[in-house]
Structure formats: C-alpha cells, structure tokens
Amino acid sequence: MRVLVAPDKFAGTLTAVEAADAIAEGWHRHSPGDELDLAPMADGGPGFVDVLHASLGGELSAMTVEGPFGTPVPATLLVIGDTAYIETAQACGLHLTKGEGVEFATTIGVGEQLLAALGAGVRTIVVGLGGSGTNDGGGGLLEALGALGDAPLDCGPVNFAGVTRVDLEPARRRIGDVVLVAATDVDIPLTGLFGATKTFGPQKGVAEDRLVLVDGWLEDLANATDRRTSLEKGAGAAGGLGFALMLLGATRTPGIDLVVDAVDLRERARRADLVITGEGAFDFSSRSGKVPYGVASVAEQALRPCVALAGQVLVGSREMRALGVESAYSLVDLVGEERAFADPAGSLADLAARVARTWSH
C-alpha cells in the first residue's frame, strides 16, 4: 500500500518534518511493508522555509533581524534560482511576543528580511505569512523599506492614532521591478468585523475591551495609505503584513497552494492509495487556507481518501466531511493531554500505528 504523509506542524510541539517522521515511524511499526511518501507541508506560517528547503533544496542564508520589541532574533533566507523565500514568523512570530505587548510590537524585522532578499539580487520574493504575534498592519516593514509617515510606523499600532499621511514611494522604489508574492494562510481583510484585530487579536494578547480601539488604529493607517487595498482578501494576514505587501505591489496567493505546487503534491497524491494529513488542532477554521483542507482537496481531486491525525479534533463527522476528511483521530483522546505534550513524537507515532490498523491493507 502506498501512503502519502503530508502534515502541517503541530504548533508548539512538532515541526511538519518531525510530524511526518513520527507518523511514518508509527505506521511502519504496524505495516512495515507499506510504501510511505513523506511530504511535510506549510501554509506560509512557521515551517514555511524549512518545508520548501526539504523538498526543493536551495541555498539557506542565516541573518539577524530586529524582533517585535527591538531584540535581535535569528532568521533564514532561502534562495532557489532567482527566487527568494521569507518566513515572516521568524521575525515577528507569536513565539516572540508570547501574547504580550502587541500594541507596541513591530514588523520592522520583516522589512529587514526583505532588504536581505533584495540584496541577494533575486527577481521574485515570496513572503510566507502566518503565525505572527504582531498586529501593526505591516507598518514596521514599510518604514524599514523607507516609507515615511507623519507618525512613526515602526513602534506598533499604538502610534497610528491620528496618522494622516504616509509616503510609500521610497519603499516602492526600493522594491523596484522585483516581483513580490504574499503567501497567506488566511483570506481576511485588514479591518472590520472579520479583520485582523477582531479575528486574531485576542490570541495575540489584545484585550477584549480594546479590540475596537486597536482596529481603529489600523483604520487610520488604511485611510492614510489605501483604504480599498485594506479590504482585499489576505490584507489582514499576519496582523496586516498582507496589507503592507499589497501596498508595495504584491500579488496574493494562498500559501498552501504555493507549497502544493512546489512539492508536486497533486501528482504524488495520484500515486498514493491513501493520503494522511494533520495539525495541532483540527477545527473548522482549517477551511480558511490551512494545510489539512488544502491536502484534503488535493486528495479529493485525485480520488483518494484522506484522514487526519491531530493533537485535538474539534469538529464532528459532518464538519469533517465538509472539509474533505474521511476520519480524524485525536492524540489527546488516545494518550491524554499530559503525555501528548510531554512526548509529542512518540504519542503521534502511537496514534499512527493505531490508525494503520484500520486503514492499511
């Protein structure tokens, strides 16, 4: 039996590469004769660069950029031919803010990542968006590239109150004729009821009673730059980094689609008998550009069944099938929450072995 293993990261516990290896180890424990094809996945968030490098090779360059609160943090640039790939979570991820100080957190380090990519002389820069701990509408990125406002743009959204003018031309000249691609994991706008602040602000540390205020600050930034662009799908990705990139001429593509194409997942699914995906929490939000839905869609097009292994399964059977998944299995339900976090790889391997009993020929 041929099995395609294409999981996302299990946030906070396993990278996508580690998750794929754990699933393979457990599956082979029960069905050693099965042929496994490992295709770790990403949607533009954490793990984006590692997944692409594992599948496509290329040259990795290490750098140090400014983190969301000014502390230097490590980042990596991947160059494949004349294309550079950036993972913005490395410079402004939730792991760096830990849900605190988001009103003062900046994306200036992402701008520094872009400058490094421009310095590499590439023709295209693909920016993976997702997993951010910031909510500054990409203001820090814009200022790092030379944009000038009548209020500082690199000190977090708190400084956008009352901003009326932002000159984007210096930043646009810096980009020149380089093609920018924003690989997003969500398709939300910058502001409003379904915007960046209202949707993801609470998990980044924005207090419930300040959501309207912070959203209003991003409205001020949008009005000072381009209100219409702020309403585009993906403008709210990564706390508004999608918006900043679109202001600089970026086109938007779902990150999962970009990775699916890059690793040739459609053809690999056609060669498989079963497709396995997974992530930390499998819920209905997975439909919004996340890995499990993307992989399940590929499996459906290939007329192959897809099952999901997850830390937690938070949807019922009807919602699961609406996402294109035949069955979903919970790590916490099998081994308990304590062991799931203490030994995530071993626990995931045990779950995979259990699933193999049902699905392997």
Rank of each mutant, 00 (worst) to 15 (best):
D209P: 08
G149P: 00
P74H: 07
E66P: 00
P254R: 04
G128R: 04
V263D: 03
D226Q: 09
P74N: 11
E337R: 11
H28S: 15
G140A: 11
G195N: 01
R339H: 13
L118S: 12
L129A: 07
P189F: 03
R270H: 11
G311L: 01
L323T: 00
A161Q: 11
V102H: 08
D350K: 15
T124G: 07
L303Y: 12
G58Q: 01
T184H: 06
V110Q: 05
L118A: 13
D209K: 09
T124D: 07
S132V: 13
E208H: 15
A151S: 11
L221D: 02
D264S: 09
T83K: 12
T106W: 01
Q312K: 11
L193H: 14
Y293E: 10
V127Y: 02
A310E: 01
V298A: 07
L114V: 15
A345S: 13
A42P: 03
P72D: 11
F160I: 06
A161E: 14
P344L: 02
A244Q: 07
R174Y: 02
D150P: 09
V5C: 07
G93Y: 05
L145C: 09
L334C: 10
A161T: 10
A16W: 00
A356S: 14
T97N: 04
S55N: 13
V295D: 04
L96K: 08
V5P: 00
G119N: 12
D261P: 06
T97I: 07
T253I: 15
L141W: 02
A91V: 05
A120S: 15
R318D: 12
V325A: 10
